[in-house]
Design a protein around this nucleic acid. Structure first.
Lengths: 326, 326
DNA sequence: CCTCTTTATGTAACCGGTTACACATATAAA
DNA sequence: TTTATATGTGTAACCGGTTACATAAAGAGG
């Protein structure tokens, strides 16, 4: 490994001078700079970030903690974060938490041990003192939080939108699939939908689901039609569940959207490729990731930031699992 | 930040002794050990991995480089890698390369700068001297390579399987969608399929595609039926493209699988939720990730390893976009 | 010509760990 | 009792950078 000493020797200067050249700090004579740069080139030297990080007590790494990259919503968030960070020369230590507090703590610990300068987390425990004690900027992604920096979509609005649209398109016996109770945005959506349905006096049922996994999605879809075969409108907690419901509805010989309308949530990339294509509430996942990256960088570089809570807009995407509005 | 010195002071011993205790190296008297452990507990000390890494010239980090986490095939690979690494106390620095050599180099560089102990990469340039010069164990994932450690699925076999199955189920005017030419596994699949089709004298066309993106998948699906409206069997380069083809076929009023059969590749999680559910060639993505993690760890810890090229089995998954075999 | 400031560079301490080495004591073997 | 060995602990060098401080030369101002 070629070190700063090798470069110094090659250029016949001290390590301090080399450091000054590569960091562009302090005074360096033009001729000296050239000598150093030539030596760097010849030896193909790149500074050891670990040594830097040790002295400065900060690295160019940030921690990214997501529940499960396997859930099709998160890759887009992750990609947004990565692109935002990459452009600013930050790198990412990545972990899946599985919504599991022990794993979460373990990762937070290794983030600290590796001198990360900030953390982006999609956690169900944003108020855990694990985060409060963290002397680092933290941005909560896809999770509402009034007292901490956060980037999230307007789940309640999304839920309201979905309910409004399904009513406007004629559903009168609606079934809401209530997502996992411990996942905040899922509950926001649910609340929003319930509000609208109650207000407009439409009859509705609730199917409780406890995760976003593919396997179980099919199960809940079956349960839904078992219990409420006559439902004519389903508000799914996300697009995976919606897909499973659509699949099951078609299997049962129902016509979608004529017999039953379905509205998903998230607008994952595959939604538009389903047949019929899935009507859903769009969340700008990639942009949310980028926003989170931007916010975290501002917090890292400026310490205080005015607009710490970024709410992203949601919108209804009309495709083919809903009928035309009257 | 609490350092080893603080612990040493608190326990009235030297830093060397503290180090011995936490690393379980050398001799330490039981009483001393207890004093140190108590101090660690009281101060809530955790060792700084950066300092460790600097002295030892190795970290507990590995680099993971994937083309694009947004492509639904990769999250499963990533998750497999992550789980395998996490269980062995390794952490992951993650990057998307976009199949772009510049980005790839940039990441490899930061991997080195951060003292990673190994790299897992899904790259189109496994023989680039960038990897040869790397004095670290590297495992190529989802990429064949005879002279470097690698984990990959049998693409050629997969392509053969797909062709055999679609023929056995009665397709006589097959269209193969040839994936991006620069992506090795895509070409292996293509080769395999072509071999079988030529051998059995079945008429076939080829549609060339240049990426795996969602947007373009729809375009190619349209192109396919524009050029070959009468095709009665499509071998798609992956499940995304297959989904787009299915979507387009249904939109054109075709009956799937009666008028046209479709076989995908990868078996991404959503495939089984499509309507009709997608018949496809299954690759064990998650297990491939885990295998790659295991292989890399063996390389890190043992240096030499006997079985450095792990080929994973593929299999045909019969669902509803193919007819029953005769 | 002298003083003050700016420019230029080197020496050494420091970041927080690990470990080679020295040294002291306890235990076992002769 | 003497010697060899095993056990226990501390001091200081080291990893590869950054930077405070010291020092010196060059240029500016009077």
């Amino acid at each position: 490994m070629v070190t700063i000493k090798d470069v110094a020797k090659q250029a016949c200067v001290s390590v301090a001078t080399v450091s000054r050249v590569i960091n562009e700090t302090g005074y360096v004579h033009a001729d000296t700079r050239k000598k150093v740069l030539d030596a760097v080139e010849q030896l193909n030297y790149t500074p050891n970030e670990v040594a830097r990080s040790l002295y400065k007590r900060k690295s160019k790494l940030i921690g990214l903690l997501l529940p499960d990259i396997t859930n099709p919503y998160f890759p887009q968030l992750a990609r947004g974060v990565e692109d935002g960070m990459q452009e600013n020369d930050f790198r990412i230590i990545f972990g899946n938490s599985d919504e599991n507090e022990r794993k979460e703590q373990e990762y937070i610990l290794t983030f600290i041990q590796n001198n990360v300068v900030g953390v982006i987390a999609s956690t169900n425990h944003p108020n855990s003192d694990m985060y409060a004690k963290l002397k680092l900027p933290v941005v909560f992604l896809d999770r509402t939080s009034s007292d901490s920096p956060s980037v999230y979509a307007d789940g309640r609005k999304g839920g309201r939108l979905a309910a409004e649209e399904i009513i406007a398109r004629g559903s009168r016996r609606v079934t809401i699939m209530q997502g996992p109770v411990h996942i905040r945005p899922a509950q926001d959506r649910f609340q929003g939908a319930v509000e609208v349905l109650k207000q407009s006096g439409i009859e509705f049922n609730v199917i409780q689901t406890s995760s976003f996994s593919f396997k179980e999605a099919e199960m809940w879809a079956k349960e839904l039609f078992n219990k409420h075969l006559d439902t004519d409108g389903v508000l799914a907690s996300n697009d995976i569940v919606a897909t499973a419901v659509l699949h099951e509805a078609l299997r049962l010989g129902k016509n979608v959207p004529h017999d039953v309308q379905i509205i998903g949530f998230d607008d994952i990339p595959l939604s538009s490729l389903l047949s019929p294509a899935l009507s859903t509430i769009h969340q700008p996942a990639y942009e949310m990731g980028r926003e989170a990256a931007g916010l975290l960088i501002r917090l890292i570089e400026q310490g205080k930031v005015e607009n710490r809570n970024i709410q992203m807009p949601v919108r209804f995407v009309e495709r083919d699992t809903t009928r035309k509005a009257d």
